[in-house]
């Protein structure tokens, strides 16, 4: 089979599933190399971009999904009666920032940075699907660890956490700052 055929199959698959799909799953279904699938997906995505289509392909933390071109957002939204106000509270943004910039974090970590109880912000973010549980930490109390979910990448347009803009606030410029809790763990002794 030629690349063209494969690309058409990928396109059809992305349309059929609707949700985000991992290259590995496509690779095992088609019995071809995962690297090839990733290359073809990137090429297909560039074709979509090059032709200014109404549909684009988006990479979301390693998975791929079809979505509408943001250029036509205002037009498409006219079809819908009402779109939920998506903005969050300051507390929720702060909580999300701690979790995203640390890749993952426990509630205790969030609270140690923010200095306030963050339980309700975490539940809000879980309810909105922006963060999800990523297991439990092997520390006293076995606290739940939270990480950004696929919805987070969708809502913020990030391909991966590498897209996060580094924040530097020290007046002397990027100088090394000691982290308060370097590895997030509570000392055991």
């Amino acid at each position: 089979m030629k690349d063209r055929d494969y690309k058409n199959i990928l396109e059809a698959m992305l349309f059929a599933t609707g949700e985000e799909i991992q290259p590995g799953r496509i690779a095992s279904a088609l019995d071809i190399d995962k690297g090839t699938v990733e290359r073809l997906l990137k090429e297909l995505s560039e074709e979509y971009n090059g032709e200014h289509r109404g549909i684009v392909l988006r990479e979301l933390n390693g998975s791929w999904q079809m979505c509408t071109n943001p250029l036509y957002f205002e037009n498409v939204r006219l079809l819908f009666e009402k779109i939920d106000n998506k903005s969050l509270s300051q507390a929720a943004y702060e909580t999300l920032a701690v979790i995203a910039y640390n890749t993952e974090a426990t509630r205790a970590k969030v609270e140690s940075v923010r200095g306030v109880n963050s339980g309700s912000s975490i539940s809000t973010l879980v309810d909105k699907g922006l963060i999800e549980e990523a297991g439990r930490l092997d520390a006293p109390g076995r606290p739940v660890v939270y990480r950004p979910s696929v919805e987070f990448y969708r809502a913020f347009g990030f391909r991966s956490l590498d897209d996060l803009i580094p924040v530097d606030t020290s007046p002397e410029g990027p100088e090394e700052e000691p982290k308060v809790f370097p590895d997030d763990r509570i000392p055991m002794d």
């Binding site: 684009v56 943001p70 957002f73 903005s87 999300l96 923010r114 809502a155 913020f156 924040v167 530097d168």
Partner: peptide, 26 residues
């Protein structure tokens, strides 16, 4: 300092959130 960084990144996320995500998904 850690909180200052948290607040700054929260601000960034807020800005990005306002402009990004103009896509519709199935």
């Amino acid at each position: 300092l850690e909180y200052k960084r948290c607040k700054a990144s929260a601000g960034l996320l807020k800005d990005i959130h306002a402009t990004a995500g103009l896509n519709f998904y199935r």
